Simulated scan of single mutants.
Amino acid sequence: MRVSIFITCLADQLYPEVGESVVRLLHRYGCEVDFPELQTCCGQPAFNSGYQDEAREVARGMIRAFEHSDYVVSPSGSCTGMVHHYYPQLFADEPEWLGKAEALVEKTYEFSQFLVNVLGVADVGAVLNEKVTYHPSCHAMRLLGVRDEPVKLLANVKGLELIDLPKKEDCCGFGGTFAVKMADMSEAMVCEKAGHVCSTGAGVLVGTDMGCLMNIGGRLNKENQPVRVMHLAQLLEEGVKQSESGDK
């Protein structure tokens, strides 16, 4: 199975180790992974700020970058949601590009969605003795309908205790440009989210979007809270390594 990685801006620039974990896990299940170098931003910041013409041009670049890919997998529900829900809207009046946008939508998946629903993998054989709580990001949950997939993967990690996050469906306050335009409200929201994380007593916070994890992790760090913040792919890969080291 040939898979192209859509790395996203945050993972590419700030958290490349997340992309590495995704690639290594996909390799375990026989995927041939490539990285189209033409890819850039998905256009979400421009789109959310009302710059639809600029977002459209960025989207054209993304469509060209992945035009020949069989599958496109991303470690972000937010960026995947942008492709799924807003690319067809951007090209509604351009039939040729609309067809290309819809073709990209059909083959683009968030990481956990691809692992569980396409590869049929709910147990990667990971072992991790940690108390973990999971934050479901807004776009993955509401735009893509990614709800059960991350939980299934976490539930099958041996030794892991999954603790339910209070008010887990509440936004963390990041929202990209929202955090800049509405800074006071964003801060209040992330303070509340960090409080809920700490109330679980978990040593690890896991999620599927680095925007959310960056925001919550920044707040936890500011409050000197000893909580590790990890993308789901990182946690699964760490668990796989522990399992393999225990087998030797």
Rank of each mutant, 00 (worst) to 15 (best):
A155C: 13
P136H: 01
Y86A: 00
V124Q: 03
T80F: 06
M185Q: 11
G81N: 05
L154T: 10
V190M: 05
C198K: 14
M82W: 04
A188I: 09
C138H: 04
C172G: 07
K181P: 00
D148M: 09
F114P: 00
M182C: 07
G120R: 03
G203T: 10
F114S: 00
I163P: 00
H139G: 05
H135Y: 14
A183V: 11
E94A: 15
V190Q: 01
G176T: 11
D123R: 11
D170V: 13
C191M: 12
V204C: 07
V190D: 01
P166K: 13
R142H: 10
L143C: 11
F111A: 01
G77K: 06
K181D: 06
V190A: 05
Y71C: 00
L128F: 03
A103H: 06
V204A: 04
L154G: 09
E187Q: 14
L143P: 03
M141E: 10
C172F: 06
E94W: 10
E130I: 02
V127L: 12
L128G: 03
V105R: 13
G201P: 01
Y86C: 01
F111L: 05
G173P: 02
P136M: 03
K167A: 15
D170L: 15
V105N: 08
D170Y: 15
T200L: 12
M141W: 10
S186E: 04
A122R: 13
W97S: 09
G201C: 08
F178Y: 12
K131G: 11
K131Y: 08
D70F: 08
N117S: 14
H85C: 07
